[in-house]
Design a protein around this nucleic acid. Structure first.
Length: 118
DNA sequence: AAGCTGACTATGG
DNA sequence: GCCATAGCCAGCT
């Protein structure tokens, strides 16, 4: 059956969904990076979309531990998207992650590699 | 409907 | 060693 072209809006929503799925995998007290997620999905250069997806994930009814995702420097670049800049840091500290100067302390050690989960 | 934006990252000057 | 630029791609306005 050929489908009408009106369904041409079949866009790759998988990207966002995968981002959500991977983000949910992140264990408490751990953090990962946009690049790692993007690479895991298959588009290492699409790290922006990861952040974008996480931003929109905040609107979702489902809870996504978006605060566990930081940039490759361990910097809380997305803290401002939580409504108030302190929320993200509070969430991280609540899980035992130390944040100093908007940066995750011992980021390298706390980094959770999604590949290890596969 | 078309263009802008963005929670990035790597590279070059 | 810091600032500027380019690539990336889809959802949002």
């Amino acid at each position: 059956m050929k489908r009408k072209s009106k369904n041409s809006q079949n866009k790759n929503k998988d990207f966002f969904e995968k981002v959500y799925e991977i983000t949910k995998m992140i264990p408490p007290g751990r953090v990962t990076t946009y690049g790692a997620i993007a690479k895991l999905i298959g588009s290492p250069s699409s790290s922006r979309l990861v952040g974008l997806a996480l931003k929109y994930s905040l609107r979702l009814k489902e809870y996504i531990p978006a605060h566990r995702v930081v940039n490759r420097n361990g910097l809380l670049t997305g803290k401002h998207s939580f409504g108030d800049p302190n929320i993200m840091q509070q969430l991280l500290e609540n899980e035992g992650i130390k944040v100093e100067n908007n940066k995750v302390v011992n980021f390298k050690e706390l980094f959770w590699d999604p590949y290890l989960h596969l």
